[in-house]
Structure formats: C-alpha cells, structure tokens
Design a protein around this nucleic acid. Sequence first.
DNA 1: AAACATACATAATTTTCTTATGCATAAAAA
DNA 2: TTTTTATGCATAAGAAAATTATGTATGTTT
Lengths: 112, 112
Amino acid sequence: MSNSKLYKGSLSTIILKLLAENNKMYGYEITQKVKELTQGELNITEGALYPALHKLEAEGFLEVEMQRVDNRLRKYYKLTQAGTKEKVSRIEELERFIETIQGIVNPKPSLG
Amino acid sequence: MSNSKLYKGSLSTIILKLLAENNKMYGYEITQKVKELTQGELNITEGALYPALHKLEAEGFLEVEMQRVDNRLRKYYKLTQAGTKEKVSRIEELERFIETIQGIVNPKPSLG
DNA sequence: AAACATACATAATTTTCTTATGCATAAAAA
DNA sequence: TTTTTATGCATAAGAAAATTATGTATGTTT
C-alpha cells in the first residue's frame, strides 16, 4: 500500500497540517485527501492512521466531535490551541529535515 | 543526538549515496562526513550505523576491505554493482518522497 | 449474492531507530 | 598522571512507528 519507509515519522505532521487547513476532518477523509494531494503516491493505512490520531489526541493536540452522517459514525478531529502551535513547529522541523537531506543528496560544492 | 524521527528510513540511502561519491569509506568516516555535510544537524549514532552497514552488506550492496591504520582497524566499505544500482533507485525514491511531502506541505492551489 | 466503498478500531509483527554498554588504541586535558 | 575525548568497531535492550491482518458495521454497485 503505502510507498516507502521514508514516510515513517511524517504522518503526524501531515495530519496536523491537513487539520490546520481544513478546520475539521475525520479519519477516512484524511486518507482520501492524502491520496488526492499526492496523486496516489501516499496511501495511509488505517493501522497507522487511527493510532496516530489517538496519540495526537492524548497529547492534547486534537479534540474530537462525533457526528452521525447517513447512519454512519464519523469522528471529526480539529486542532486545539496546543495543536496549532505544534503544527507550526513540526512543519518547521519537516522543512529543516528536507533541507538537511538535500544537503547530502545534492551537496553544494565547497568553495575552495 | 540525532535530530528527528523524520530521519527514519533514510539512513541506508544516505550510506549508498556517500559511498557512490567517495568510492570507499569506513564507518566512523561516514558519521563524520554526514555531520560535516549537514552542519551538525544530523548525527548518525553507531547503534544505527553499524547494523545498517551490516544489512547492506548482507543484501549484497556493499563489500568490505579491512585495513590497519595507525594500529587501528578500519573496515572500508564500497558499493558492489548491485549496490550502485540500488543507490540509483533509492535516491529516486527519496527525491520522489520529498516531492510528495511538498505536495502536502506546500500544495499547489487547484485550478478552478 | 458478492464485491467494493465508507467508517471506525485493535493485535501481532516488523523495521528501524535510540540508549546503553563493551572492547581497544591514542591523544589531549585536567 | 589520571581522566576525558577522539578514533574505531560491535551488540543488546528497549522504544517508536509503521505494515499486515483482522474485526465490526452500513450502504452501494455489480
């Protein structure tokens, strides 16, 4: 399903980012949104998603609101204030990480 | 020590990349090179590095040559032919992953 | 009737780290 | 001169975060 091992560690950052943009989302919706945004490249498995959501909630970054739609239960998540802060720092961390990796993969030739 | 959880999964790709550029390197040298290239951002721990090298060797991507220098033993690693191929595909995977992540973090606004 | 989509959840397992420890030599600092 | 730091390898225990496999339930499509 999911593409690479590289994905490891970035899931919670992705969740926080999507919730910051969409106010509230439910689990299944997140998997579909990620699939869409990545043109099918990244497929979040349920076994990864739900534990990640529960952890973020336990850490106080998300709050939950249940809603019944078409006789199906949805668990909507939205960022708390702490979650909004956390999102900022995790995105920064992710961008710094990407720069770091690119410093190895595409090293700038040393001046000398 | 090491910076982030995001790093997870990228170590073996980093090793293959460095060996492709430097012909042969020993473990300690790899940790120093990564520290240098990333300005101290990424510090590979020995507990991660050595098992990773052993695994790449077991998979047939690296070959070993022992050498004694200043009465200290060094284990030089270099890419095999299979390792050279593997490096290409792993770097491609890494670059695709970075693009994918950026598609989420910096989504292009949909035309509409 | 069977398969697929929607929607949640968890358990067992695997992968890949961190942390801690061990051995050994050599140089630098206290 | 003793201790710390650097060089160089290695492995074991534990943690984190996935994958894979299930399970439950409803609704739609084939």
